[in-house]
Design a protein around this nucleic acid. Structure first.
Length: 445
RNA sequence: GUCCCCUUCGUCUAGAGGCCUAGGACACGUCCCUUUCACGGACGCGACACGGGUUCGAAUCCCGUAGGGGACGCCA
């Protein structure tokens, strides 16, 4: 059986870490099994859905390297398909009209809660008489429609949570059609999952109760429910909801503001909450190969944003020039060559840091002219051009011999005079990058 | 309030009654390498939420307590 999955964001905002994790894990699962991964845009809420968000979601996924099969599907284009199913469900009585206003329903819930009862819909609409209905209609009320749940136990074998059971009595009949006649998420989602032959639904555990009602909907529509995998929600370092620092950032911000590499994000999101260690892989292959739902824990893991930054640094330290070059060109650093990259990359945390090192080598530096006598003496001992990787040792050996200095007293003043900083790349490789002219100039203040 | 899920080193976890003096990864510490940073290597620190049971024996099973997460929308 070919596995078919989908990622179904609603374009009502930017995609954040939590959503991105679901998108990624679903994708890894699909790719691991050589299955399909569909992108479905859940835009039934016309008020809040915006094309700019759809564009941002696609751009974010593409940047992350999460590709989908075929064209994206919009729910707003599928209204005819929904209408057919709606007619069937009305005909067989699974969809029934209700006339309560939102305020009345809120009141009912409040009253149940006050009596320590679960706020389940009382199905009052089912016992409405024709006269009462006519009275409501005369008032100008339009019905919304609920799906009538069967009073049977609902059980499924969740790929992550194991056997999940629900008592139908504790669930409210879900509203599937709004008063204005537009269909709601539950209805559209189930119909689409049937029509697109989705075999596995992967989503956050905030959907487990929905799944219970969806299973009855699948059955009411004559379909076999797919398999489900409900991911524990990721929580903040403080244990609360994801809300602070990187956890609240959109993909666009992770990319543009935080300057993170896609794989720095992916490595963390793919492995967080699993038994596999988080590693700095520079491609998806190892993540796809090792993917298995059984490795996910059932508890909510805490997300430490710093982990992404650490991984980002490691990825840059290991990055070959060929891979960095397109990025550097895009940043306008077309003059950076392999030698410069290899010299400087161990000191990078984020790609943009390279600009600072470029300026240290090429731009003017602000150094404090300490130890001027020593630096002056060292300047006169510089070997003649051309310089190579051995020049530094030649030079400092001579300086050591003539001045009697060694260790930190010898090297640190030189580093400071040459770079204006007390840390940085290996000076043996940095010196040739500076070249005789700049070196002389800096040594002379 | 009701229902569901979770609780092992700082963090992510392994662990499905004796293989556990509880294993790994990251972080942290010390040392080695080193002019610095980083890399690499070695070693180390460090946990079964609490209280009762069951059992010859419990991190593992049961009950309770506490803490955390989720759900209970004419949102998705």
């Amino acid at each position: 059986m070919t596995i078919r999955t989908r990622f179904a964001p609603s374009p009502t905002g930017a995609i954040h870490v939590g959503n991105l994790r679901t998108a990624l894990i679903t994708w890894l699962f699909a790719r691991h099994h050589g299955g399909h991964y569909l992108l479905r845009i859940d835009d039934t809420d016309v008020e809040r859905s915006k094309d700019v968000f759809t564009d941002a979601i696609m751009a974010g996924l593409t940047w992350m390297g999460i590709n989908w099969d075929g064209d994206k599907v919009h729910q707003r284009d599928r209204m005819d398909a929904y209408a057919k199913v709606i007619a069937d469900l009305k005909a067989n009585g699974r969809l029934y009209p209700c006339y309560e206003t939102a305020d009345e329903l809120a009141l009912k819930r409040k009253s149940l809660l006050a009596r320590s009862l679960p706020p389940v819909y009382d199905r009052a609409a089912l016992s409405l008489t024709d006269t009462q209905i006519k009275a409501y209609e005369a008032e100008g009320r339009k019905p919304h429609w609920r799906f009538k749940l069967n009073d049977t136990p609902i059980v499924w074998n969740d790929l992550i949570r194991g056997e999940v059971k629900f008592d139908g009595k504790l669930l409210s009949d879900p509203v599937l059609i709004r008063e204005d006649g537009t269909p709601l998420y539950h209805l559209c989602s189930v119909i689409d999952d049937i029509d697109f032959e989705i075999t596995h639904i992967v989503r956050g555990e905030d959907h487990v109760t929905n799944t219970a009602t969806h299973i009855q909907m699948f059955e009411a529509m004559g379909a076999t429910p797919p398999q489900f995998a409900h991911l524990p929600l990721v929580s903040d370092a403080e244990g609360g909801k994801l809300s602070k620092r990187l956890g609240s950032l959109s993909v666009q911000e992770l990319r543009e503001t935080e300057d993170l590499e896609p794989m720095a994000i992916a490595n963390v999101l793919a492995r967080l909450g699993t038994a596999d260690p988080i590693e700095a892989y520079d491609s998806y292959e190892p993540l796809i190969t090792a993917f298995d739902f059984s490795k996910f824990s059932r508890g909510s893991p805490k997300f430490d944003p710093d982990e992404m930054v650490r991984l980002n640094a490691k990825l840059l330290h290991d990055m070959p020039f060929a891979k960095a070059q397109p990025r550097l060109n895009a940043m306008g650093l077309t003059q950076v060559d392999a030698m410069f990259w290899d010299t400087v990359k161990p000191n990078l945390e984020r790609m943009r840091d390279i600009k600072d090192w470029w300026n240290v080598v090429n731009g003017p530096i602000t150094g404090t002219a300490q130890d001027a006598d020593f630096i002056g003496a060292a300047a006169t001992l510089l070997p003649p051009a051309p310089w190579d990787a051995t020049t530094w040792k030649q030079w400092t050996d001579t300086v050591k011999e003539k001045t009697g200095r060694k260790g930190k007293d010898l090297f640190m003043p030189l580093r400071q005079a040459l770079t204006g900083m007390d840390h940085g790349p290996e000076l043996a490789t940095l010196l040739p990058l500076l070249g005789p002219e700049r070196t002389q100039k800096r040594l002379k203040g």
